[in-house]
Design a protein around this nucleic acid. Structure first.
Length: 400
DNA sequence: AAAGGCTCCAACCGCGCATGA
DNA sequence: CTCATGCGCGGTTGGAGCCTT
């Protein structure tokens, strides 16, 4: 085993950094980039090991770091991403602009984990501790498949993230609003330099993971459905055969078609395609996707299908009655499927009331899952896609 | 006011992976 | 193929500050 760098030399300083040390490190990196971390301390005149310098830079000094309290949306993102990715903090951090993996990890351990625990939800599995919510063989099977595919997608996500890091690719002026947030997580240049934030390619996002899960759930029962973590775009006819409430089938089918269209880029563009210089093509696909989405929005009213899809906070802010009464609000029996969206016990919407009111019943668990659903609403396209994924995964598939 | 407990988070440690000689 | 090296990741720790008794 390789010795820890910091243990090789005695006499190197440890512990908290002083402002003088910070200044030295900052000044050196701004002028020269970090280059080899191992060689940096000597060049910068620091009595620290390279590893310590790297940590200080990446977790504290980097200019593109946002510090301070996590907002509601960030909290929800962390929970959702943790449910999908587990303790892969670096992967989670790539989806939270300007937050470091260390900061997210700390926040999870000190706040969110405890909060979920108090809700009666296992912070590791993200399932209710008593598992009453997921009882029943059908649902368990669907959940197992979802979990299985999440693992595959997770692995793929990680590999693609690595590829992207290595490719150092930069997409100049990424098209805005295609996937919700053009100013997504920056990549810190491996070159060190001044580490100006660069745009992360939008095609490699957690949405792709959702898309992967969509595919997996639509392919439940197919022997080939779990073969490859890179499986994409093989939408089966099953996707359109899922029983939907008659009159609304057209809308829902169209919505799924949109998801498929979205997948054409999000899921269908692999990291290797990026590496083959297909980035512009990907952007074109995204633009096309955005155009199709706009068309759909204007012609059929996307928000009729997925109420408040573009305003994820409004999802919970509104009353169940309003959702029921919203035009098309009963599309695919959404309100029936999800149950009432009671806000009063929702810990994510009601601030700190979790400590006051939680008694471990199903209501809170449902709200928790609704919160997870809601989270993806941070991305207007992702919300709708995920909503359908989740609805099918948890409510429809078990009935098949 | 003081002591003890608790919370939070920056920093450290150990491990595994990638890469190059 | 093997080994040394560098780096990144996730888990853990230490201590400062806050809270409670």
């Amino acid at each position: 085993m390789v010795k820890s760098q910091c243990r090789e030399k005695v006499g190197l300083k440890k512990g908290p950094w002083t402002p003088e040390e910070d200044q030295k490190l900052l000044a050196y990196i701004e002028e020269h980039g970090h280059g080899s971390w191992r060689a940096l301390p000597a060049k910068a005149g620091l009595q620290r090991c390279g590893k310590s310098c790297r940590l200080r830079w990446t977790n504290y000094l980097r200019p593109d770091i946002k510090r301070g309290k996590f907002n509601l949306q960030e909290e929800q993102s962390i929970i959702q991403l943790h449910a999908l990715l587990g303790n892969r903090w670096s992967a989670i951090a790539t989806h939270l602009p300007k937050r470091t993996d260390n900061e997210i990890k700390n926040y999870w351990n000190t706040h969110l984990k405890k909060r979920l625990d108090k809700m009666g939800i296992d912070p590791v599995t993200h399932k209710p501790k008593a598992d009453s919510f997921g009882s029943g063989s059908g649902h368990s099977k669907g959940a197992a498949n979802l979990s299985h595919m999440a693992q595959w997608e997770s692995a793929r996500l990680e590999a693609e993230a690595r590829l992207v890091r290595e490719s150092k690719l930069i997409v100049p002026n990424p098209p805005k609003n295609l996937l919700g947030s053009a100013a997504s997580a920056p990549l810190v240049s491996n070159e060190g330099s001044t580490a100006a934030p660069t745009a992360r390619p939008q095609c490699l996002d957690v949405l792709k993971a959702w898309q992967g899960v969509v595919f997996s759930m639509f392919s439940v029962g197919r022997s080939d459905s779990l073969e490859s973590p890179t499986s994409t775009l093989n939408f089966s006819e099953n996707a359109l055969a899922i029983p939907l409430n008659g009159a609304h089938k057209q809308y829902s089918t169209t919505r799924i078609a949109f998801a498929t269209n979205n997948a054409a880029c999000i899921g269908g563009t692999t990291a290797s395609e990026f590496d083959r210089g297909n980035r512009l093509g990907c952007i074109e696909k995204l633009e096309e996707t955005a155009r199709v989405k706009r068309d759909l929005d204007s012609s059929m009213g996307i928000h009729d299908i997925i109420p408040y899809a573009s305003d994820h906070n409004a999802w919970f802010a509104d009353s169940p009655a309003n959702i029921e009464n919203a035009p098309g609000g009963d599309i695919i029996g959404l309100s029936e499927i999800l149950g009432s969206n009671s806000q009063e016990h929702n810990p994510f919407c009601s601030g700190e009331n979790i400590n006051e009111s939680y008694d471990g019943n199903l209501e809170e668990n449902r709200d928790y899952w609704n919160s997870l659903l809601n989270l993806v609403g941070a991305s207007p396209t992702g919300s709708a896609v995920f909503l359908i994924i989740y609805t099918i995964a948890t409510r429809i598939v078990p009935l098949l």
